[in-house]
Design a protein around this nucleic acid. Structure first.
Lengths: 190, 190
DNA sequence: AGCGTTTCGATACACGGTGCCTCGTAATGG
DNA sequence: CCATTACGAGGCACCGTGTATCGAAACGCT
């Protein structure tokens, strides 16, 4: 038989890495230019100089494209160099978190995805596969001897997250005070 | 001249309250049935038994319709009866907040709106006109002698907000512990 | 080299929602 | 009864969706 699309095939023309990168970068650029709502698969394909079917072959939604386009950047921007003092380390992470969410293109993409997840189960499951925010928080908690539970991570992320998502000025938050309180609240035994 | 649509007109046929309610309820119902993504102005109009132009005359986006449809419910659900003990009062509010965000239809609408606000300035300004979440938190803070600053409200809302928005189990959060820590962190002078 | 397989870019298609416009009609005030 | 405005209904061009199909290109195998 003449075959159907068979993604893990060992024979035939291999997937073009060039096309893949072009799509990912086009999605990134267009998100900044036109915003998530006006982001279309058609637009991405045209900008990338790629057939529309080539996009649909590898991704089923624009959310999937965006997720693949921003996860790596997100993980990098949220992994901050360690500070000797635990409270300072936490404060530095909180600053990085706010900056990421409020100012980074990858952060904008992540907010758009988390937004879409609120009314799209597929997106919700997609972003659940790599819990970028909580994982980065857990890393910082762990290296400062604090509990790494889901609740602890949520305590760390919660305030900056709501701050940015509700459209408040990212410079208006005081990470130092927040870090100080979090240290006390989360200090073991618990 | 034969005139144009003139919303604050003193003459002519008055706006139909019946049509307004029908649209608002149709939006509410459809949000539950099909979700925000599949929610269309066309669908709302048909469900409401209303001309499509009648919808466009009073609202410019589906977000505006949804906002008007859920704000009142939201404010009601977030105004909890006062408890004698401050920590218990705060804990009771936190429970109501999680329930609202995670389980209430109005909460679902609010999450959808906040989601849309991440990539739509008009929606961001719209929901900023009535900061339902922060206002309800401020009320609880005030009646327990705690500071009512934006940051204090964000501290209260942050953790439950992130918890629900990131898709975690609403029953997995412990409002009592959170309330206890918040009381200590926010206690005056500050 | 030749063949089968799979992806490539390109294009066409039916479908459905958008936002605007126009129709004839209904409900106000002067 | 007339001017004015909103009403429900339906039509319109436009655009994005997701699928199908085309010939060409790029691989492994013999």
């Amino acid at each position: 038989m003449p075959s159907v699309t068979q993604h893990n095939a060992k024979v035939g023309r291999p997937r073009s890495e060039q096309a893949r990168d072009a799509v990912l970068h086009a999605a990134d650029d267009l998100l900044e230019e036109v915003g998530y709502a006006a982001l279309t698969v058609k637009g991405i394909a045209e900008r990338a100089g790629v057939g529309r079917q080539t996009v649909y072959r590898w991704w089923s939604t624009k959310a999937e494209i965006l997720f693949e386009a921003c996860v790596t950047d997100a993980e990098e921007e949220l992994s901050v160099p360690r500070e000797p003092d635990p409270a300072a380390d936490l404060a530095s992470y909180l600053t990085a978190l706010v900056t990421f969410l409020a100012r980074s293109p990858a952060g904008a993409a992540y907010r758009a995805l988390l937004a879409a997840a609120q009314h799209d189960r597929a997106v919700k499951e997609l972003i659940a596969t790599r819990d970028v925010l909580a994982d980065s928080a857990r890393t910082v908690l762990a290296r400062n001897g604090l509990p790494t539970s889901d609740e602890a991570a949520a305590r760390v992320i919660g305030t900056p997250f709501f701050w940015v998502m509700s459209g408040r000025d990212p410079d208006g938050l005081h990470p130092g005070e927040l870090a100080r309180d979090l240290m006390r609240d989360l200090a073991p035994p618990n």
